[in-house]
Design a protein around this nucleic acid. Structure first.
Lengths: 339, 339
DNA sequence: GAATCAAATGTAAGCGCTTACAGTACGGGT
DNA sequence: ACCCGTACTGTAAGCGCTTACATTTGATTC
């Protein structure tokens, strides 16, 4: 059908320029090793033919790709988007290309994507959180793929990671909430199974309760996927059960936004009738009415540092330095002091 | 330093299983062509060695990658995130892997990413909008890379595209606004240069003004990057100039959210003192107080259809069928009728 | 038990590139 | 005129895989 004008190869360029393939290759990869006159001749041929090197062949021969892969649970969440954007910008500045894929929070898809990226020659990998099957870690180690975990910091983890301590951060917020007089606390949590961040956040609240001599078992918890509508639904469900809590602490800002929306729909005033808190401090938090009390996480900073460290790992300048970032509590209007 | 335990190859597997490389290859790619007994023997060897095929070599030999590339302006915008998530899910269901990269709205980076993805053997490409340098289109055509443009629909464009007519959609919204009695309209637009979506939306408002015998030149327009803070800034700037508009139409929901935040900060009531509209209908729109009047775009639907069509193109079952989706106006609380 | 033929497997030629090593050209010292 | 060293450039061997084609195997038939 279509004219089978085949894609030009190194060979075509060499022939057209009247030199060997080695010379063309050198022109492209280490121009200083070839004399001016030859180089311009070759470059002309490259232009004329519209030649672009075949990446697969290149990788196979050279064993380096200058590609970093990142695998995130979902692209829909602003948290990852932010950090990843910074990650990508930093990588680009260092001459690396970022390839992203997502897993919809499904471990088996993550494993698949890891293999896909490794097979495609990724020099290094960025993964979210530390909870995953040992086999996957074993695979990565065997392949000697530098891997950095982000969005989590587990003191003493054996994988290099960069992030913050989800548990401690949430504990700090819960302590604040308690200090403001709240005793009837409820929580809307993300799905904990296979998600160390969600798990850490839930534990953080429990830690705070214990610390203050309260009973964690008495706290109503609803576990639901991260999603606005789910937040709304969970909030309503929480209200149906027995005594109304004075505060609903949410596993992230998105859930909190859903809860606030439903509160409004039900004619319940935040924070006068009930307080609500979030986690992440995405832009949403400042836009909501009332503005959302939450835990601020330095996403961009994390993305940037992750890129720097991962490149160092790939270039064998570091074995992976764990790095803990600070989170901070953003007190805003959605949380009210109880008399 | 580290034991140089080299990565296992097809050859290693073949040797270990006592068969030829061809047989191993067949076991992996068309298992039905090899007898049960041999297959299990080979699979065992694969397991034992932890073998994963080298993608580069595979591509080079087979010329197919089952990889689709998508290049978006930014990951930070929920619009693309949504559609892309659906795109990825659909692709995954069809056995393709999606690789994403972003450009920060910079054309030269886009060109670079296109080449990176093509070099890596992407079977097909998803690009956003149609405005880009002819050279890039030429390159794609020469390489015979099936390319689908999304998030835009230009009647009569020569590239296959899937999306909606930004201009008509915004025109419809503006007509509605005018029908509700507004005469003093101002606009906060995204950067138009090199962004056909932003351009279309601006033109749409102008079309509506002309249609209603109003003077487009009299409409204040502020052009600013898509970003909440910029929306806020632009809103304030708009108020400083002469007569206060009765409505501010924004190029997207994010800008509108910024405008609403600033309005609240300035003690201006929406919609009593001033109306505000957006575009895209991201989740934000329903959460804002007051809820945002905007144009609804079926992002997920678009992502899903784009995946289906692009796969058809890659598999030579379609040459690229342009597809126009419908948008609709979501009338909500941020827009008020003027007496 | 020989002949036949389909199914299973093996052989080996690339795919497009990099790079160790070999070859060539040329200027300068003796 | 000869020898050397230096600076380029060419030759050719892979890199790990797929696949056309050749060969072997083994079930089936007469």
């Amino acid at each position: 059908m279509s004219s089978v004008r085949t894609v030009p190869t190194l060979d075509d360029v060499a022939r057209k320029a009247g030199v060997s393939t080695a010379t063309v290759s050198r022109c492209l990869n280490s121009p200083e090793r070839v004399v001016e006159r030859t180089r311009t001749k070759v470059m002309r041929a490259v232009e004329d033919l519209g030649y672009t090197p075949n990446f697969g062949a290149k990788v196979m021969a050279a064993k380096r790709t200058f590609t970093i892969g990142a695998i995130i649970p979902t692209m829909e969440n602003a948290i990852f988007a932010r950090g990843l954007q910074a990650f990508q910008e930093e990588l680009h500045a260092r001459g690396y290309t970022l390839l992203v894929s997502s897993t919809s929070y499904r471990p088996e898809i993550e494993a698949e994507q890891v293999r896909a990226l490794v097979a495609r020659g990724a020099d290094g990998l960025l993964l979210i959180g530390y909870a995953r099957h040992p086999d996957l870690y074993r695979y990565l180690r065997q392949r000697e793929i530098p891997t950095l975990l982000a969005w989590a910091f587990l003191p003493g983890a054996d994988q290099p990671c960069i992030g913050f301590d989800n548990r401690r951060s949430m504990q700090a917020l819960a302590n604040k909430v308690i200090a403001m007089g709240h005793r009837d606390i409820a929580m809307i949590s993300g799905i904990v199974e296979g998600n160390d961040r969600a798990e850490g956040r839930r534990q953080g609240i429990i830690d705070a309760l214990l610390e203050n001599g309260m009973d964690p078992a008495a706290m109503p918890i609803i576990e639901t996927p991260y999603d606005i509508d789910n937040g709304a639904e969970a909030f309503e469900q929480l209200l149906r059960g027995g005594t109304r809590p004075t505060v609903v602490m949410c596993g992230n800002d998105v859930l909190a936004a859903g809860a606030m929306r439903r509160a409004r729909e039900l004619g319940i005033s935040v924070p006068d009738d009930i307080s609500i808190t979030g986690f992440d401090d995405i832009e949403l938090a400042r836009i909501l009415t009332p503005s959302l009390t939450t835990v601020h996480v330095p996403h961009r900073e994390m993305g940037r540092r992750a890129a720097a460290e991962l490149v160092r790992m790939v270039e064998h300048e570091s074995k992976g330095q764990p790095e803990q970032l600070d989170s901070s509590i953003m007190l805003r209007d959605s949380l009210k002091r109880i008399p």
